[in-house]
């Protein structure tokens, strides 16, 4: 059972307090987008065995959504950060790169 630190309230929350929300930093495609773009947005989710960026909600805590960088193979949590981010913070990316030299970086 995971623990993730909510970046808003600072609580190291239990998985049972949280709601998982899938891949982070999705770009929304609405009317006007091609079928491929829309499919990519809604269904072609990243599924790496390794570093992954994802959405979580502190559902039974402060109610805020936040983002996490986590390894899907070891469950190591590299860090959490506010949902209002268009990409992972630079220092977090550097931290991951230092821990996982083979990581291809955020794409």
């Amino acid at each position: 059972m995971l623990t993730l630190e909510c970046p808003y309230c600072g609580v190291k929350a239990e998985e049972t307090e949280l709601q998982a929300g899938g891949e982070a930093h999705l770009k929304r495609y609405g009317p006007g987008a091609s079928d491929e773009e829309f499919e990519g947005y809604l269904f072609m989710r990243k599924n790496p065995k390794g570093v992954h960026f994802e959405r979580w909600r502190h559902a039974y805590g402060c109610g805020k959504w936040f983002l996490a960088a986590r390894c899907t193979a070891t469950l190591e949590v590299f860090g959490t950060y506010p949902a209002q981010s268009t990409q992972p913070p630079v220092d977090l990316q550097a931290k991951i790169k230092a821990k996982r030299p083979n990581w291809e970086g955020y794409k």
């Binding site: 929300g21 109610g63 959504w65 949902a83």
Partner: peptide, 13 residues
């Protein structure tokens, strides 16, 4: 309610 918050916090913040 969660759905509303999701869009407000994560897309149209």
């Amino acid at each position: 309610h969660g759905w509303m918050e999701d869009w407000l916090q994560c897309e149209w913040w």
